[in-house]
Design a protein around this nucleic acid. Sequence first.
DNA 1: CCAATTGATCAACACATGTTGATGGGAGAG
DNA 2: CTCTCCCATCAACATGTGTTGATCAATTGG
Lengths: 108, 108
Amino acid sequence: MSRDAEIVQRLQALAEITRLGIVRRLASGERCVCDLQSDLGASQSRLSFHLKKLKAAGLIVDRPEGRWVYYRLAPGVLDDVRGILGALSHEVDEWDHNTGSCCGGDEC
Amino acid sequence: MSRDAEIVQRLQALAEITRLGIVRRLASGERCVCDLQSDLGASQSRLSFHLKKLKAAGLIVDRPEGRWVYYRLAPGVLDDVRGILGALSHEVDEWDHNTGSCCGGDEC
DNA sequence: CCAATTGATCAACACATGTTGATGGGAGAG
DNA sequence: CTCTCCCATCAACATGTGTTGATCAATTGG
């Protein structure tokens, strides 16, 4: 998978209200699905669907233990995403109002 | 629109390969649609569609001038998104392996 | 005025995504 | 073993998203 596809997948994983809630919840520590279920008021099936997305994007990791499966944030991944956005917004500082001409130059 | 919905909309706007390319391109300065068209090799209709999404999310702003419409990054918005992600990943530092019990406590 | 250019918008289509309710499987309790 | 709990998975459905090709409005140039 290309780097860009990976970034897109991670951003997309975060770009959903339920999953954002899950990530926010996991930010304070490991939780099992049943915890998230009561915290977020979401059905078990729905949570499982979203956890799968987050896991596929590498944002969370699971730890099965007995009957339960504990989820937590994958270390460093959120900061990695932040780094990408930082690299994007960084160049805008030295922005010149008329850096380039339209349509490649002399024609416009 | 709630704060969370706004964040989701912005993340979602970034979570697409064409739009990520647009943002990356605009990071180095203002561009008109015809510039992006040749840079990204995308059709005019497709670009217009994605630019509309980015604009609706508040990530870019437009500046009509004559026949052309110039787009550029909205200042501060990318950093705002970064700030959100930073707030999320921040709490994970003080993570305790067994912070909470499952399912609210005494039952598991 | 007429023609060309830029870009927004539309309809139509294919495909992806999120939800619900049901089913199944593994682990532990009785 | 049987029953229950936790969780993943599935089918079915509704909705959202991205693409193409056509059309339209506004601007500019001849």
